[in-house]
């Protein structure tokens, strides 16, 4: 038996006359094209499903309200509606960016919180307190130079004036202070990293 293809225009007319099955034929005839078109723009099955549904809701409303002007271009008209709804979707999303972690890419791998978390903050405090304790073990003259330089942010010129020694002596004391600190750290296997 030969299948007779009823044209879109006839189906639309039948639908407007109350034949609901005509809409079913129209949807089934064009669903793949329209769905693929939407998917090629949004690349998300769920969004495609939503846009597809909204497209046909608009089609049904327009047809029932008698606003559709039949010019034999049913599919291009539906495609245009789908296209406009895709644009609406992107406009809405650019105003309200939505990040979901459903895909492989996670936005949180790119964004980082510059503030230290609780664990890192505890480690930082621990390291700083360890360093202070080791500094207390240094000979008094070396300790004095190191504290002035590192904690009070004084220049070697200022340190030499304050301690009454030459700049070279202050530099030498700083050098020995650092050597001794390293020695103590190595000897006691102290880990000073965050």
């Amino acid at each position: 038996m030969k299948k007779i293809l009823i044209q879109d225009a006839v189906l639309v007319k039948n639908y407007l006359n109350g034949d609901e099955s005509a809409l079913s034929v129209l949807i089934n005839r064009h669903k793949q094209k329209i769905y693929s078109f939407i998917y090629s723009k949004v690349f998300d099955r769920d969004i495609t499903e939503d846009v597809f549904q909204d497209t046909f809701i608009k089609v049904i409303k327009t047809l029932k309200l008698g606003k559709y002007n039949e010019e034999g271009k049913f599919l291009p008209w539906v495609m245009r509606i789908a296209h406009n709804l895709v644009i609406d979707h992107f406009r809405r999303n650019s105003r309200m960016p939505k990040f979901d972690n459903a895909g492989e890419f996670s936005i949180f791998s790119v964004l980082s919180d510059s503030a230290l978390n609780a664990e890192k903050s505890i480690i930082k405090n621990q390291v700083e307190s360890d360093v202070r304790r080791i500094i207390q073990e240094l000979p008094e003259d070396q300790k004095q130079v190191l504290v002035m330089r590192m904690y009070q942010d004084m220049s070697f010129k200022e340190i030499s004036e304050r301690t009454g020694v030459s700049i070279n002596t202050a530099l030498g004391r700083m050098r020995y202070a650092l050597i001794n600190l390293r020695k103590v750290i190595e000897q006691h296997n102290i880990v000073l990293t965050n």
Binding site: L23, S24, I27, K31, Q32, E49, F52, Q53, I60, K61
Partner: peptide, 22 residues
């Protein structure tokens, strides 16, 4: 790969059409 809408979506549209009266 043929991309097609879910059967539920199509059914929803057909039911919506039947329910809508102007």
């Amino acid at each position: 790969i043929q991309l097609n809408p879910k059967k539920e979506t199509v059914d929803f549209l057909l039911n919506y059409s039947k329910a809508l009266r102007v």
